[in-house]
Design a protein around this nucleic acid. Structure first.
Ligand SMILES: [Mn+2]
Ligand SMILES: [Mn+2]
Ligand SMILES: [Zn+2]
Ligand SMILES: [Zn+2]
Lengths: 138, 138
DNA sequence: ATTATTTTGCAACATTGTTGCATTTGTGTA
DNA sequence: TACACAAATGCAACAATGTTGCAAAATAAT
C-alpha cells in the first residue's frame, strides 16, 4: 500500500476505512483521471456504488481530488497536486482528454492562461480542457 | 416565430418539424445555454424525451448548436454563432457558468487563449469554462 | 474493553439516457 | 391535390446513473 494513503486521510481528519484506502490508492497509482465507473469496475464490486459516490464527494470536499469537466456527461476526478484544502481548490492546470481512449491527463506543468472575462462576472474558477488524440493513440 | 428558424433547418437539409422548430426557437430566444432538462420543462411535455435527445444530437452534428462541458454531469447547449457546419465546429469562445443561478453564458467576444500543450498530444479542441457569480446574482 | 461516532451496505426510489419498432409526419413527384 | 416514399416521432421497455433513509458494521475515542 502506498505510504501516502494513511497520511493523507489523517491529515484531512478522515477515518481510515477500507474503501477510502483502496480508492485513494487507485488515484495514487493511476496516472490519468478516474470516473466513477472506472472505480466501480476496477474495484470489482468490492464496494457499494453508494459508497463510491460518497467517497468521491468527501475527497473533493477535503481537497484530495478535483473534478474535471467534460462534454459527455461523465465527470472525472484526479488527485490534487497543489496545496488544496477543505473547500479551497487550487488546481490551476490544464487537462487533456483523449477522444480515442478516453484517458484524461492532468497537465500539471501547463497552467491555465489568463482570460479576460467582461466586467460584471465574478470569476472564482477557470477550467481548461483540451481534447484530441493522446500520444498512445496516434 | 423567429424568421431564421426555417432557413437554418433548410440550410442544413433537415425536414421542418414541430419539435425542431420549437426547440430551435428556444435557443434563438434565450440568451444563455440550455440543458436537456430545461428544454423538457419549457416545452411542457409537448415532446417526448427521446425526441429532445435526438433533436439535440442532430443539431450538434449539423453545427447548429454546440455543447458546453460542465463539472456537474449536466451538459448544456448553445447556438453556434460562427460558421460551424456538419462535423466542424468553430466555437472558440469562452463560457461562463453561474454557480448561483446556473445560467451559462457564451462570451462570444472572448476567444479561447492559446494553450501550450506538450508535444505528443494532438489537440483538436480547447474548451474554457469560467465559473463564479454572474451580474444578476451579485 | 466499552462506548460513542462515523461509515457502510442495502433497499427503495428518482432521474437520466438508449434502443427497436409501429405510427405519424413531412417531402418530392405525378 | 393526391400519392408514394422517406424521415421523424412517440411509445415501450430497458439500462445506466444518481439520491436518500436507515439498520448494521467498522472505526475512533475514552
Ligand atoms: Mn487535474
Ligand atoms: Mn458558446
Ligand atoms: Zn488516447
Ligand atoms: Zn447567476
Amino acid at each position: 500500500m502506498h505510504p501516502r494513503i494513511v497520511d493523507t486521510l489523517k491529515k484531512n481528519q478522515l477515518s481510515i476505512t477500507e474503501s477510502r484506502k483502496k480508492i485513494l490508492e487507485m488515484f495514487l497509482q493511476r496516472k490519468g483521471a478516474l470516473a466513477h465507473a472506472d472505480i466501480e469496475q476496477q474495484s470489482g464490486e468490492e464496494f457499494d456504488r453508494v459508497t463510491i459516490y460518497r467517497t468521491l464527494q468527501t475527497f473533493v470536499e477535503k481537497g484530495i481530488i478535483h473534478s474535471i469537466p467534460s462534454a459527455d456527461n461523465s465527470v472525472r476526478y484526479a488527485l490534487c497536486k497543489d496545496d488544496c484544502s477543505e473547500g479551497h481548490h487550487h488546481d490551476n492546470h490544464v487537462h487533456f482528454m483523449c477522444d480515442h481512449c478516453g484517458t484524461t491527463y492532468c497537465l500539471d506543468h501547463v497552467s491555465v492562461p489568463p482570460v479576460a472575462i467582461p466586467p460584471g462576472f465574478k470569476v472564482t474558477q477557470v477550467d481548461v480542457v483540451a481534447s484530441g488524440t493522446c500520444m498512445k493513440c496516434q
